[in-house]
């Protein structure tokens, strides 16, 4: 078995550093220059950045290819998001080897939104694996250097993570599911966005028993429009009314563009600083995963939050 860690993210987690990851969302284009620009902007601040895999079932450039290009062009380490929606077990095993050969070392196992939700609903929904059995497959290939007992001549090396949802209802089902992911060998968890501190503490305390490092998903809001949109359109997540009111106030009361931006950034800082500090103090977090795409200017402030 190859020696861990395999990546900067893996090393950060192993050393107990407080880890920060960002998120990049390649779009329906073969030209990644826009994503590469954002990757360059966040690179100085983060351990790694997730690269999404056709979120909402809306087809985009393949996440393995995008992760490879981003890593090559910017040096920013990627967390390759891999859903089980589109490829069967055989295909995914091949992709794990291909991903390694392309230099990827972190993979996030996801179910993926159903094809019926996206812009190619006529596609076959595959789901041969699920988010737990994909973790298991990666661990088998990495640790046992084999698939179904058949040796892999040069085996892949990956840190494999999984998702966790503090907003889930019923919560009991989610907790037990995280237990399955832990049993399958998940090495880190990235959570869905959550704004309620009590709920977050309860959730993180509950899953502490599984001993998997947790990166809390946060979504700093770049503008009132984004905050409102997030509240309205992301199922199962709501932005608290007082935050929405504060963001609305900024939109209404500040006209100067530069000042407005600074006010939004400051408001995010003021909200997330005590939030994260408290969770850190309680020893519930291994890091933070910032899911706010196209908001790279927030990273210097986030670093302040994290270092606080």
């Amino acid at each position: 078995m190859a020696n861990r860690p395999f990546s900067k993210l893996g090393e950060g987690l192993a050393k107990g550093e407080f880890v920060l990851t960002g998120e990049l969302e390649p779009e329906k284009t073969c030209d990644l220059s826009h994503t590469i620009k954002e990757a360059n902007e966040m690179a100085p601040y983060v351990h790694a950045a997730n690269v999404t895999d056709s979120p909402l079932g809306i087809v985009t450039i393949n996440s393995m290819a995008a992760s490879n290009i981003i890593q090559r062009e910017t040096g920013l380490e990627c967390v390759w998001q891999l859903t089980v929606r589109d490829v069967n077990k055989l295909g995914i095993a091949g992709m794990i080897m291909g991903g390694h050969a392309l230099g990827l070392r972190n993979v996030l196992s996801l179910t993926g939104d159903h094809t019926a939700l996206g812009d190619m609903p006529e596609s076959k929904p595959v789901f041969d694996l699920d988010s737990s059995t994909l973790v298991k497959l990666v661990r088998e290939m990495v640790d046992e250097e084999s698939i179904n007992g058949h040796e892999i001549e040069c085996p892949p090396t990956f840190h494999v993570g999984a998702a966790a949802n503090p907003n889930a209802d019923p919560m009991g089902a989610e907790i037990l599911k995280i237990g399955r992911k832990a049993e399958a060998g998940a090495e880190f968890l990235q959570t869905q966005v959550v704004y309620d501190i009590d709920r977050t503490i309860e959730f993180l305390t509950e899953i502490k028993k599984y001993k998997v490092p947790v990166l809390l998903g946060i979504f700093p809001m770049k503008s009132y429009g984004i905050a409102k949109g997030f509240d309205t359109f992301v199922p199962g997540v709501s932005v608290p009314p007082d935050i929405l009111a504060k963001w609305k106030g900024i939109k209404k009361n500040i006209t100067d563009k530069k000042e407005k931006k600074a006010a939004y950034d400051e408001a995010n800082y003021e909200f997330f600083k005590p939030f994260i500090t408290e969770l850190k103090k309680k020893g519930l977090l291994a890091g933070v995963h910032c899911m706010a795409v196209h908001y790279t200017r927030i990273f210097p402030k986030l670093i302040e939050v994290i270092k606080a």
């Binding site: 929606r85 996801l110 179910t111 939104d113 159903h114 019926a116 939700l117 929904p125 789901f127 699920d130 988010s131 737990s132 059995t133 998702a163 949802n165 889930a168 209802d169 019923p170 089902a173 989610e174 599911k177 399955r180 869905q192 199922p235 199962g236």
Partner: peptide, 20 residues
């Protein structure tokens, strides 16, 4: 299960209901 998952529920579940 809309995805015939062996280990659900998936992240698409909201208040007991399915994303599909």
């Amino acid at each position: 299960c809309a995805k015939s998952l062996m280990n659900g529920p998936c992240g698409g579940m909201v208040e007991g209901m399915c994303e599909v």
